[in-house]
């Protein structure tokens, strides 16, 4: 397959970036999007040019390291996948493909397509945990949990922290990301104890780090590669209200 690539190049966080155009040929339809970029980079290195920098690691859709806005969509045109699991057969031969980094105030560009997502770590450091030291735990079956609650918690906990929700949201809100952790822990008895403190601390941190507010457009849910539902945002709102009303 043959493509025209319009790729965002930016030297570092201080420089201004711009789109560069690359023509690429002989791409197998079974190649993943990142493998297509590998092929491009191989050509660039051989020509003595600097390859395109992009984040990636596991290449099986679970580490959350890959990102990319492809033709205006986070993780590209396929449904429920990260960029590393997007395959070139989803494009038409001869397509022009626009590739950009995540764009959000909370995620400054480091180089080319790489952004700094350490804000996500900071939000979780603010309260995304249960305070239990190693060795404190009772026998696992001493905490029975209704299967339905455990399943909902699992659905929320499946968030990979990639940032597609933020990149997609017109307000650059991190609400779905925060909701996934709050909802995961709020559905479990061992997570209830700190629920109020947790939700307040995480929301405060999210706002402090420059993420916007949620206006319920639902676009985050559409682009989430792990299909995390905005019902978790509803859960977050209930938890937030409860915490503030202290009921």
């Amino acid at each position: 397959m043959k493509f025209t690539l319009k790729i965002w190049r930016q030297k570092d966080s201080k420089s201004k970036g711009k789109f560069e155009t690359y023509q690429i040929d002989n791409i197998p339809s079974d190649a993943s999007f990142l493998e297509m970029l590998d092929i491009l980079n191989d050509e660039l290195v051989r020509k003595g040019e600097e390859p395109v920098a992009f984040d990636h690691d596991c290449r099986e859709g679970i580490c959350g390291m890959c990102s990319l806005h492809i033709n205006g969509r986070a993780h590209g045109p396929d449904e429920d996948v990260t960029t590393c699991q997007l395959f070139m057969r989803k494009f038409k031969d001869g397509d022009t493909i626009w590739v950009e980094p995540w764009r959000a105030k909370g995620f400054p560009v480091i180089k080319d397509l790489i952004v700094d997502r350490s804000a996500f770590d900071k939000i979780l450091q603010a309260g995304g945990y249960i305070s239990v030291n190693t060795g404190n735990a009772p026998d696992a079956n001493n905490i029975p949990i209704p299967k339905d609650d455990a399943d909902v918690a699992m659905d929320a906990a499946t968030c990979i922290g990639c940032g597609a929700c933020v990149a997609t949201c017109k307000n650059s809100s991190a609400m779905l990301f925060v909701a996934a952790k709050v909802s995961h822990l709020a559905h479990l008895p061992q997570g209830r104890i700190e629920a109020k403190r947790r939700v307040k601390a995480m929301i405060d941190k999210m706002e402090e780090l420059g993420f916007g507010s949620c206006t319920n457009t639902g676009s985050c849910e559409v682009e989430c590669p792990k299909n995390i539902s905005i019902t978790h945002i509803a859960k977050l709102n209930r938890e937030f209200l409860k915490a503030n009303l202290d009921v």
Binding site: V132, A137, I145, K147, A150, M154, A157, H184, L188, Q190
Partner: peptide, 23 residues
């Protein structure tokens, strides 16, 4: 090995469960 499961459950790791609520 058993302590690991206890620790993980206490941290909120959502292991698969039966309808009775047990692992």
């Amino acid at each position: 090995s058993g302590n690991i499961i206890d620790q993980a459950v206490a941290q909120g790791v959502p292991f698969a469960r039966e309808y009775g609520g047990y692992l």
